[in-house]
Nucleic acid binder design. Structure first.
Lengths: 192, 192
DNA sequence: ACCTGAACACCGTTCAAGT
DNA sequence: ACCTGAACACCGTTCAAGT
């Protein structure tokens, strides 16, 4: 669909801007100044500002999903190790730029349907992958899915999770969550 | 708090505009043109555009609540008649301007916290009043509240109700609802 | 008390013209 | 293929000055 490489400069500048100032900061004129071109040139690559925002969402959601899948499918590790690897993606040194973008987009998604759809796609992919890993650990699908949701909520931060699920109890800490994750299947495996 | 009568012209023009074009249509400059003044004059009455929007919400929610209460407390009628009166407020000849405003504000509330708060206030007041009438008809508080919610949903239109409640089954029609309302307490009273 | 007029700064979008 | 330059239309906000 998109073979216009020139779009990427605008998309990246837009993502940097949304991280710094939120959606409202993503202005065609300001971006043009950042890129050292005039705002007229923007319309060679995009129909209008909305098209840029849509492309930013597309780029972001696709990137988040492939990054998560790549980490999950890393060869030579057990399901448990893969889970830890995924968790560490968001607890180790959480690329502050990436986190800022994610927060800004989730903020935006609170009042924009297209942004909400992108966030929902990303959340669904992450929950699906974590759920599959839990299934590999022996949980039946529904339990695995439930646990995936808990883990995701813990790791990402409940208030930021974009989901229709009812509110969960307060998360104690990431550490407790990881402990819980490890303890679960040695003592209380659902099926062997 | 607000003794500035000059504000009302702007608030009313703003409400007319939101009915016609939605929140985005409420522009200081356009309103000024409608009122036959220059936009500079706007700032005599309001700090900025946000203040106008807030005042519009305040005016709307207060107006909706007192209108509902006035209809509910009409003297010389039974609780059942009062319920019918309230229903007819929104089924008889539903002032199209008022309905348009209500729809526009609910649309706006989907992505604005202040608007959402105003809508929530209005919904809460309406639900409370209807619930009290059901209590007068003999339902215990929790049943009365549940039934009030159903009635409100039916009358106002489920898709428009701003509430965290889970989705209800499809409403058949206003007529069926009113029938239900009438039948309920002759055959299936919960407590006498 | 209320409004005008003019200015300022900042937008999105278009499009002929350049390279 | 990509960008400039200039224009157009439309904003929100400020404020000295009028009445």
């Amino acid at each position: 669909m998109n073979t216009d490489v020139g779009q990427n400069r605008w998309i990246e500048a837009g993502l940097a801007e949304i991280a710094a100032r939120g959606v409202e900061g993503v202005r065609v004129e300001a971006l043009a100044k950042t890129l050292g071109v005039t705002k007229g040139g923007f319309y060679w690559h995009f129909a209008d500002r909305r098209a840029l925002l849509a492309a930013m969402l597309e780029s972001w959601s696709r990137g988040r999903i492939v990054a998560f899948e790549a980490q999950a499918q890393r060869a030579g590790t057990t399901a448990q190790e893969q889970l830890h690897g995924l968790v560490s993606l968001y607890t180790g040194s959480p690329n502050p730029q990436g986190l800022a973008i994610e927060l800004a987009i989730r903020q935006w998604a609170r009042h924009d349907d297209e942004a909400a759809a992108a966030v929902a796609q990303v959340d669904a992919a992450r929950l699906r992958i974590v759920g599959l890993l839990y299934q590999q650990l022996g949980l039946e699908p529904s339990s695995a899915a439930a646990r995936a949701f808990m883990l995701y909520s813990f790791v990402f931060g409940q208030s930021l999770v974009f989901s229709g699920e009812p509110k969960r109890e307060q998360a104690t800490s990431i550490a407790a969550c990881v402990e819980f994750l490890t303890r679960t299947f040695s003592a209380a495996g659902t099926r062997r």
